[in-house]
């Protein structure tokens, strides 16, 4: 994979930069775009993003490693992010975590062999009224029970 954006994405980068008086404020959006395009942020991607924003690669690396939503290694097609912070813990997140681990045969931080699922536990997702909750990629699922979870995971192709 060659590390550069196609023409239309380079135009998008220009649009992102236009929102700010300084180019480097667009780094967050450019990294999201890079992640969408390349799957995750490798050192080569960091270098490329650095070149687009006239920043040192070390600066980009600091930003990438500071925030949890920039992926530093590949994840499965479905990234399961289960909240186990206080409200979800009180409402059964531990049982859900046990069920996912058992069902998929992976531990937190791991990906199933065929590359379909990655399991993370995450901090509060701001949907505590529906606890326990999780996100799969960019979609939120609430009021989970072990059975509901089973059906949900089975329904994903």
């Amino acid at each position: 994979m060659s590390v550069s954006f196609p023409e239309k994405d380079r135009k998008l980068v220009e649009e992102m930069i236009r929102h700010y008086p300084h180019k480097k404020s667009a780094i967050g959006d450019v990294l999201y775009l890079a992640q969408k395009h390349f799957g995750y942020i490798t050192p080569e991607v960091e270098l490329y993003v650095a070149s687009l924003l006239d920043l040192p690669a070390s600066y980009v690396h600091q930003v990438v490693t500071f925030y949890s939503m920039y992926l530093k290694k590949p994840v499965g097609k479905y990234l399961i992010m289960l909240c186990d912070n206080v409200s979800c813990l009180l409402c059964g997140a531990e049982d859900l975590l046990g069920r996912i681990k058992e069902k998929l045969g992976i531990e937190v931080g791991e990906t199933t062999q065929e590359g379909k699922f990655t399991l993370w536990t995450v901090e509060c997702l701001g949907a505590c009224e529906q606890a326990p909750v999780m996100m799969i990629n960019d979609k939120l699922y609430g009021n989970l029970t072990p059975d509901k979870l089973d059906r949900l995971l089975d329904s994903l192709e």
Partner: peptide, 10 residues
């Protein structure tokens, strides 16, 4: 009005 998305940092 511009929207700026965070990236996961409390």
């Amino acid at each position: 009005v511009h929207i700026h998305r965070g990236a996961g940092a409390y």
